[in-house]
Amino acid sequence: MKTKILLAAATAGVMFAGSVLASTLDDVRARGKLNCIINTGLVGFAAPDDKGKWQGFDVDFCRAVAAATLGDADKVNYTTATGKTRFTKLAAGEGEILSRNTTWTFSRDVDLSQTFIGVNYYDGQGFMVPKALGVKSAKELDGASVCIQTGTTTELNLAEYFAGNGMKYNPVPIETNAEAQELYKAGRCDVYTTDASGLFATLYSFDNKADHMVLPEVVSKEPLGPVVRHGDDQWADIVSWVLRAMMAGEEKGITSKNVKELAAKDNKDKEINRLLGKDPLQGLSKLGLSPDWAVNVISQVGNYAETFEKHLYPLTIQRGMNALYKDGGLHYIPPIK
């Protein structure tokens, strides 16, 4: 009796586990929609617009993957996650991609059994203070109360930075960006810290932007990128090459406006031909994508520069490290051949 129950339970468990092991691409195609895990609300990266539609840099990446795999950038279901719940949600299969300002670190990559497919935004942790405080450098923050958005690498960087500079501080950890902002505005903290991109996004939402400033120090390396689950290399390849296709688009001057035109003709630059499906790209069938995958991505979502300009320029974020290598930035993609 007892063994029978255990057997039945084990079978049920294996069957459940089996569904996890099926090809992610097949799951997405069967559903006709991509499930994407995004931020609960960070202007510029993922925030609903006045029509309630999700907009932002991270949202655009979900749309790009949907365009490549399903041919339609609008076929995305969005699931929001806080910094704390995101990995659990990804592991539990609530989404095929985690596109939520996630810092690539060793433990997250290795210990949490997930795959970082690349960096789509080079960031670093910064500090925002009210100008009235009269602070010009993070080194003057000894004894300050610091509001932290938890669930990121932020707590560790902060602890290391203050300890490294022999300074004390009083941490006030808050779960979401919105609540942390309120506490900072109410004067509960002298300083608000999170990734610099998040600070600019937060500042953008303030009524009195001129009263606050972001300090010059960037105290950590925060390579942010999309994450997928371990174990499905085909899916990881698809997601990473969608990101590279967007960057290749910028590198080769392919934009949402001229992509159809370039795809129709024979270009001198054969890499454009291979990317846009004019010339065969060896191995593409192994990814299970149609030859016009990159055309769909760039025509429906745009190249890397286009989504950056659309969503992040309004926040006064500069390209900086996020320019392509040929413009003095860090984005350098493998050749498409």
């Binding site: 339970a9 294996v14 459940f16 586990a17 996890v20």
Partner: peptide, 15 residues
Amino acid sequence: SWLISNVDANFKALG
């Protein structure tokens, strides 16, 4: 036992 074995199986599947 179903709960436990389910957790166990899923943990294994996720590595």
